[in-house]
Design a protein around this nucleic acid. Structure first.
Lengths: 250, 250
DNA sequence: ACGCTTTCAGACCAAACGGTCTGCTTTAGA
DNA sequence: TCTAAAGCAGACCGTTTGGTCTGAAAGCGT
């Protein structure tokens, strides 16, 4: 009981590895064994149709899981709730995902790719002001269009990212390290005021994600959300004013 | 099942009201009834001693609850885990708090006061740049010294603040409205560049809290946390550069 | 049409967990 | 010292929930 947290993390790690393999080969796996008696090779057409169906259903479940996990947290969301939302039976859900953790991790994995993508666009040959402006816009659009993803990511990181830590540490660290260098170059060239690159990136993340993660607070205070187009542009403009002014060389 | 979320919220609301009364009168309540037979009026000294003990124990439990809730979320944290951490029995915990929700709400209530306090300091007669600089520092100190509070607050808001919403909406809205006016005055006086006050406040919140809420991410990327004094001052300086420059009139 | 595989549902199970009940111990007024 | 109330613990209970078992339909190659 006392180390249930640590034990759970260990379990999760293990499951991540397993799911890496099993997820991609699911449905074909039993075929490898128990050949011998009969060479039943399905036609390419039917196979791909089946796979498409299977993948579609997986996607539906993942979507429902994302929605539900992001609302109630991993422990607050029950499998039955997710199954209901995805309009499948609980048993059926367990047919596609071996357990809750694998489902959760699958959701997270999709997330991380999506979350990291915008930062990759940062390249040295861009004008820094434009690059940052673009980044703000893309990230704010992400907050508007994928609030569930944003919240779930936030939740996971906040709880110590027990599942993503390994996946987060290396790739994220490398990517950021890379972008830090880009920003530093800009600074050295006098295109950006002297600000610690780390914190610039953190500020960009923080300010844009805030509008998704603290949505209800923002709604309580301002009475609007990013779904309101006017509020969206107003927000973007304000962030540009604050941050771009802040980092423009004087 | 399908509306368990809504039902829970309703339950919570109700409990909030109850706990408002019962919490303050706890321990004295049975005395009101069943008088009549004997007037057993405890001395002021012993009463206060008892109360002190009682309050201390409550505080210990609240502290443990905060720590545990902020780590695992309300559903991920079990009462037994909290009791263990507070070094009391589960039964004993239920002696002080009628149920999990009341415990959780009590933690949140303490939180909100703490969280709101810094903003109250904003007054019109200050120099805006100094006021914002102070605010950044205080909020960053909060992130450093009360990371659990910060995270739990974030979690609660992210999940739609089912418990705090009523308490959040009115007071927060009023307070912010007030401070918006202060900032607008500064802008009108030309002491601050023309930026939508809402978003300035949001940016201040977002950037400072980020260091507590995304601590593990920051650690993964930068390898340091606010606990490192050098990193703390570096962070503060960077935020000042970015935001203060951004809002200073040119 | 036959037979194997995939897909899926209902009944079921064991563990976890929030919460209660009973009763013992301590405190403190009389 | 006696006694009522406060403080507290262990056993216990009902529900929820992640997950399994059994077996039946549907898909598909032959």
């Amino acid at each position: 009981m006392e180390d249930s947290g640590a034990r759970m993390i260990a379990t999760f790690r293990q499951r991540i590895v397993e799911s890496h393999v099993s997820a991609s080969t699911r449905g074909k796996e039993p075929a490898r064994q128990a050949r011998r008696k009969q060479q039943r090779v399905p036609s390419a057409a039917s196979l791909s149709r089946r796979l498409r169906n299977s993948e579609r259903k997986r996607a539906v479940i993942l979507e429902a899981a994302l929605e539900t996990f992001s609302k109630y947290g991993i422990h607050g969301a029950s499998i039955e709730q997710i199954a209901l939302q995805a309009d499948v039976s609980k048993t059926n859900l367990f047919y596609y995902f071996t357990n809750k953790e694998e489902l959760y991790v699958s959701v997270l994995r999709n997330l991380l790719d999506l979350w990291l993508k915008p930062l990759r666009a940062f390249t040295e040959d861009q004008d820094p002001i434009e690059a940052i402006r673009d980044y703000l816009r893309v990230k704010l659009e992400f907050s508007r269009d994928h609030p569930a993803e944003s919240r779930l990511f936030c939740m996971e990181v906040m709880q110590g990212a027990p599942l993503m830590l390994t996946e987060l540490q290396q790739p994220l660290h490398d990517l950021v390290e890379n972008k830090i260098a880009v920003i530093q170059t800009w600074i050295d060239q006098g295109k950006l005021s002297a600000v610690e690159p780390y914190h610039l990136i953190f500020s960009l993340w923080a300010t844009t994600q805030h509008y998704a993660d603290f949505r209800v607070q923002i709604e309580a205070v301002a009475g609007k959300t990013l779904d309101d187009p006017a509020f969206f542009t107003e927000t973007l403009k304000s962030l540009e004013t604050i941050i771009l002014n802040g980092v423009s060389p004087r």
